[in-house]
Design a binder for these strands. Structure first.
Lengths: 191, 191
DNA sequence: GTCTATAAATGGATAGAC
DNA sequence: GTCTATCCATTTATAGAC
């Protein structure tokens, strides 16, 4: 693996674990196993390296979410697949985590990948729900965009509740509650 | 206002804005307008002061949430009052924010107020929903505990989505979607 | 109780040898 | 390209004067 690649991956891990403020260039270098000079040769500095790492993480998350949402089954089943997919809940969301970092949200460049990723996610879930309505699987009264935001929020908020409790149970409960509510919108004919 | 009080309030503000890692004793002192010695006279150090600040913030949040949830109206109306209450959405939740801070969740003492606060919140919402069921306002099939976790998660996740977008719209959409789903559980007789 | 002075460690980055 | 050495500010805390 190239030095650049090792630096990016170390940064991805550290940003996830400690956030932007909590991640020092020194820690990145140590984890990557490279010297100080290498980092400043390949990247302009901490924020430049963070940008590369955040973009990479956002892209990966997008792909893994899309695998659930574009899979087979009804709209309800695809949303359920997304909500129930395996997660290391107590680690939290690597992208959602960045929204709590002042330096990240205040930098248009660093915030952009977060905005893009969550915007895409809400849009994709809304598409799945709208498709379910067209197929007659879901109640026509459902607002696809609002419901999509709710689904995305349940996941992000579930992480918060789980980390506060140091227990995955609140995450699972939040997902279960959301799915039960959504199930009540599934039309009898399609159920 | 006493020196102690000024220190606690400055810490509350800074923890909200910058998180635990991002908050230095120096910044606290400057905002409080006191010297270095005062802080170490009244508090053992940064974490001790943070503990006082987090406890205070959690207590305040509990009171303000309870004001909505214990108000007048049907169960749906009380949950709606909580979800729709005025918030400075882009600032995020001062308690939820702490769950993204490694040093906080790894310290049993610092995490305890978060756990207590969110545990209480989920329990209180569940009580309101269960009461609604007993009164015949809400469908009996609803799982109060799971739905309560969903409601709490929607708020916390809504903050995340809003901060990523630098726009309150995703928060409002998530709340609207959750309320629409919950409204479908309101029994016709009580609607 | 409150202040300033000081200290040891870390943060983020630059210089320059190889 | 990669490394070590160096730099200055900040972090967290202690010491001790007032």
């Amino acid at each position: 693996m190239s030095t650049q690649e090792r630096l990016v991956r170390s940064t991805q891990e550290l940003l996830w674990e400690r956030g932007y403020v909590g991640t020092s260039p020194k820690a990145i270098l140590e984890r990557a196993g490279v010297g100080q000079g290498s980092m400043y040769h390949h990247f302009a500095g901490k924020s430049d390296l963070a940008l590369a790492a955040i973009r990479r993480t956002a892209e990966t998350m997008k792909e893994s979410a899309d695998a659930c949402l574009s899979g087979p089954g009804t709209a309800y089943e695809r949303v359920a697949a997304y909500l129930l997919r395996e997660r290391r809940v107590l680690r939290g969301c690597p992208i959602g985590r960045m929204t709590q970092d002042r330096d990240v949200v205040q930098s248009p460049e660093l915030r952009q990948p977060l905005d893009e990723m969550f915007g895409w996610l809400r849009g994709r879930i809304a598409e799945v729900l709208a498709e379910g309505q067209r197929r007659g699987e879901l109640a026509a009264a459902l607002d696809p965009a609002a419901t999509a935001a709710t689904v995305a929020a349940v996941v992000q908020g579930g992480y918060v509740l789980a980390r506060a409790a140091d227990d995955t149970a609140p995450f699972d409960a939040a997902v279960r509650g959301a799915l039960a509510l959504l199930a009540s919108q599934v039309t009898p004919a399609a159920g």
